[in-house]
Write a protein that binds this DNA or RNA. Structure first.
Length: 559
RNA sequence: UGCCCGAUGGUGUAAUGGUAGCACAACUGACUCUGGAUCAGUCAGUCUAGGUUCGAGUCCUAGUCGGGCAACCA
């Protein structure tokens, strides 16, 4: 599992290596600190792999800590899904499952300490006034009229805030730093607000809650985190992170390090937008196989190892970038090519009649389960006079380089016989091909000609007499542009939704696929990788999701 | 009209003052009972201008471009 992944090299690993070499730390501690207000996505997976991976690489430890300081946004449903996703990705926090809410009392005491030191005050400004006084990036702020409230009065008011004497928004506790700082976050930021809200873990024990900037560094320090890794947008918060820890009697002063969050082409990553897709039923749910969520990717058929491999390949830097989703697709193909059992499934069937093959005869041929893995063995595949082949594997008037069935051309039926196309039958009404006809060479059983003649094309097939109807969902990218977020004025990211992101069909496949266990992955030869959906499949009645198509150098060139 | 961060092939990244490398993508060929895989190859890059240096992707200065920051969100 995860502990066998090779170490990665990047600027954060370099920093840690140096800190260890310099004796700055004996052992490192990192943490993955999600807020339980949504489901994890592939961007979080990058952070998880980074934090847990670093700990593993340097023999340190990594905590799972829920940053649950805003009760109005957070729910246990999210806590549970996040734990499941981290575990599924292959990481283990052992007994170190922490919650910011477990430190509420300590954080409150630190706040009193800050007030007592004259470094924080209770402010009576309304939110609108607060904003007005703060100024804007290009104009300095001005001090709140409550900035020099005496320490005793601050303490008294803060205690009464905790006691529930005031309504939401009546007061706020602010750090007393610098109202003319060019960094907005240093202009006396709010660190505690009144919220008469039920918390999913502490219930109604509190009606004041710490703000992120106050809480996060304390959480890190309380746990003894050495390297507090976060995304780039928190870079401007770092002076505040450091200032707070410098003022307070904390056990240690962790180092905040920022890296660039993951952006993936053809999808959206913001929690707000993902939530919107779920809420408005644009997708089936958080675990819709088209979603970039961890549970969506899991249901789609991605493996933990493939996601970890992807996270290793994208690297860790401070430059904002857009990663091509083709790299993610490469990672799952790479793994499944080696491990997935093969099967023959015809997605868009048309009948193939072998004119010189006996009627009512069924014979069983050996199908190779995995050509990449000799251990995987073979299976019997039913063969008969009438088969199904892909509609696109026949062309009446085909280009020269078309190696499949066209009148007069010989092709191989995979693991079967060599057949020569004699023509086709058409629906007199529509002109659509209703059956393709051919004759077979009985000497070529298994697929090779005794005279050594070769054919350029091999196509897959299933016996019309012995095949199963299989519901299959062909997924494609959720959006049809690289940057769905990049919308013209008045536009909306949803304008870029791909209307063909899910095509539901009924395919004809080998009967053995009826036994597919939910979660089992296959390569449907010449088509792609598929998984029996863990949710919609029933025993004996699997529903397949296409994980990713096979690369197709013919189809790409000929549209 | 502020502050912070960043800039290397199409994309993602490496090179820590000394031969610009890797991966993905694309393309060509070989091979192939998957037009898959594999193998070989091709394409293609240091934002600009100065400076320091024997030598600069790397250090300095200025500029350009891109991103972030003005929730009692995280």
């Amino acid at each position: 599992m995860a502990e066998h992944d090779e170490p990665v090299s990047h600027f954060i690993a370099d920093m840690i290596e140096k800190d260890l070499a310099d004796g700055r730390h004996q052992q490192i501690m990192t943490r993955f600190p999600p807020e339980p207000n949504g489901y994890l996505h592939i961007g979080h997976a990058k952070s998880i792999c980074l934090n847990f991976g670093l700990a593993e690489q340097f023999s340190g430890i990594c905590n799972l800590r829920f940053d649950d300081t805003n009760p109005t946004a957070e729910e246990v449903e999210y806590v549970d899904s996040i734990k499941a996703d981290v575990r599924w990705l292959g990481f283990d926090w052992e007994d170190r499952l922490y919650f910011a809410s477990d430190y509420f009392e300590q954080m409150y005491q630190y706040a009193e300490e800050l007030i007592s030191a004259g470094k924080a005050y209770v402010c009576t400004l309304s939110p609108e006034e607060f904003k007005e006084y703060r100024g804007v990036p290009t104009r300095p702020g001005k001090p709140s009229p409550w900035r020099d409230r005496p320490v005793e009065e601050n303490l008294d008011l803060f205690r009464r805030m905790r006691a529930g004497e005031f309504a939401d928004g009546a007061y706020v506790l602010r750090a007393k730093i610098d109202m003319i700082s060019p960094n907005l976050h240093m202009r006396d930021p709010a660190i505690y607000r009144i919220k008469h809200a039920h918390h999913h873990r502490t219930g109604d024990a509190w009606c004041v809650y710490p703000m992120y900037d106050f809480a996060h560094g304390l959480e890190d320090a309380i746990e003894g985190v050495t390297h507090s890794i976060c995304t780039l947008e928190f870079e401007v918060h770092r002076p505040l992170y450091d200032w707070l820890l410098d003022q307070l009697s904390v056990p240690c002063h962790p180092q905040q390090i920022e890296f660039a969050r993951l952006n993936l082409s053809y999808t959206v990553m913001s929690k707000r937008k993902l939530l919107e897709l779920v809420r408005d039923k644009v997708v089936w749910g958080w675990d819709d196989p088209r979603m970039p969520t961890v549970c969506g990717l899991r249901r789609r058929g991605y493996t933990p190892a493939s996601i970890r491999a992807f996270c290793r390949k994208i690297g860790v830097t401070k430059m904002g970038s857009l990663t091509d989703i083709a790299l993610l697709e490469h990672c799952i193909r790479d793994e499944l090519n080696a491990s997935a059992a093969r099967a023959m499934v015809v997605l868009d069937p048309v009948k193939l009649i072998i004119e010189n093959y006996p009627e009512n005869q069924i014979e069983y041929l050996d199908g190779v389960n995995n050509p990449e893995d000799a251990e995987a063995g073979t299976r019997p595949v039913a063969f008969s006079r009438e088969l199904y082949i892909e509609r696109e594997d026949f062309m009446e008037d085909a280009p020269k380089k078309f190696f499949r069935l066209k009148p007069g051309q010989e092709v191989r039926l995979r693991y079967g016989y060599l057949v020569t196309c004699t023509g086709c039958e058409k629906d007199p009404e529509t002109g659509e091909v209703s059956a393709v006809t051919c004759i077979y060479d009985p000497e070529t059983r298994g697929g090779n000609a005794p005279d050594g003649r070769r054919v350029k094309g091999t196509i897959h097939w299933v016996s019309k007499q012995a095949c199963a109807d299989l519901p299959v969902r062909l997924f494609d990218r959720l959006f049809n542009v690289e940057l769905p977020d990049d919308v013209p004025a008045g536009g909306h990211f949803r304008d870029h939704l791909n209307p063909d992101s899910c095509k539901e069909i009924v395919a004809k496949g080998e009967v053995m696929l009826l036994e597919a266990q939910p979660g089992a992955r296959y390569q449907f030869e010449r088509n792609g990788y598929f998984i029996a959906d863990a949710k919609d499949s029933q025993l004996g009645k699997p529903v397949f999701n296409r994980i990713v198509a096979l690369k197709d150098s013919w189809g790409k060139k000929h549209k």
